[in-house]
């Protein structure tokens, strides 16, 4: 068990002024059997040149409140709109979380469970992944949990880490064909493989001690419990992982989503610091 302080900051700089921006931020660590959020807040700022145009502070210990909500996957979020002209949009989520070291947790939101059994969106497999799965010849003797871990090991061996090859819209199949990708791609491919093995699996967005960036991994449902696997690092999730959101694929728990008016081209910078307290 560890107490972790997190500081997630993101900045989007635009080449042209933005007149209006709508945002949804899903960056609130949920209370689960494995982790407990002590305190957290989200600050949203818009700037023009050196001037701060708007600043909004959301204390998020309480789930209810204006412009806060919980989506169908159980992810909490804050949302809003910036109406002042700005050329930079920043948000910063900070807080304290205690993370346990159990390897699994009980089922939550049972109603939505079936969606994690069916391929969807970015985790839909194509011919390449189907052929790969068939070539793995998983032994039927293994339990679902053993199969998932085996799939993770194989994927780690047969896929390599590479930045700037894929982007947020890359599907599991596309990433597999490219042979390279980041944590999001590892997660989508592992979900696709688990589905083919008949194991419910879901995408997890989160943060990891020492990573510097947001992270993603996978949870698989075996014998009524969710086990968390980190395929990018070929390891079981530890008390260094803070979970932020879950979904069928990355788009369900995207940390920030926005619609803007104006803006020209944009550059996004993310900086994540997770440190043991």
């Amino acid at each position: 068990m560890r107490r972790l302080r997190f500081d997630y900051s993101m900045e989007i700089a635009y080449t042209e002024p933005v007149e209006e921006c709508h945002y949804t931020i899903k960056c609130i660590p949920p209370h689960t059997a494995r982790q407990c959020m002590e305190k957290a807040q989200i600050v949203i700022r818009s700037c023009r040149g050196e001037h701060t145009m708007t600043e909004e502070i959301f204390p998020v210990e309480e789930a209810d409140g204006p412009c806060k909500g919980t989506d169908s996957f159980g992810n909490r979020f804050v949302y809003g709109k910036v109406s002042s002209v700005h050329d930079r949009f920043l948000f910063r989520a900070t807080g304290l979380v205690t993370v346990g070291s159990a390897d699994s947790e009980t089922m939550d939101r049972e109603g939505i469970l079936p969606v994690y059994r069916h391929p969807y969106g970015l985790n839909l497999p194509g011919e390449g992944l189907k052929a790969y799965f068939a070539s793995l010849r998983l032994s039927e003797e293994m339990s679902d949990y053993e199969k998932s871990v085996e799939l993770m090991h194989r994927l780690y061996r047969d896929f390599s880490y590479g930045k700037d090859v894929t982007d947020v819209t890359t599907t599991a199949e596309e990433a597999w064909q490219l042979g390279k990708g980041v944590c999001q791609d590892y997660a989508h491919i592992l979900i696709a493989l688990c589905h083919m093995a008949g194991i419910p699996a879901r995408y997890v967005a989160g943060m990891l001690v020492g990573e510097g960036y947001s992270h993603a991994w996978v949870e698989v449902l075996c014998q009524g419990r969710w086990y968390a696997l980190d395929p990018t690092n070929d390891m079981l999730v530890t008390d260094a992982h803070i979970k932020l959101g879950v979904g069928r694929h990355a788009a369900d728990c995207m940390i920030n989503r926005g619609v803007i008016c104006g803006g020209g081209s944009q550059r996004q910078t993310v900086n994540v610091i997770v440190t043991p307290v």
């Binding site: 989506d71 169908s72 939101r109 939505i112 079936p114 969606v115 069916h118 369900d252």
Partner: peptide, 15 residues
């Protein structure tokens, strides 16, 4: 299968 593999089902509407 007829529910969750259908494009008409929207997970966003759960609950």
């Amino acid at each position: 299968d007829f529910i969750f593999a259908s494009s008409g089902y929207l997970a966003e509407c759960e609950r």
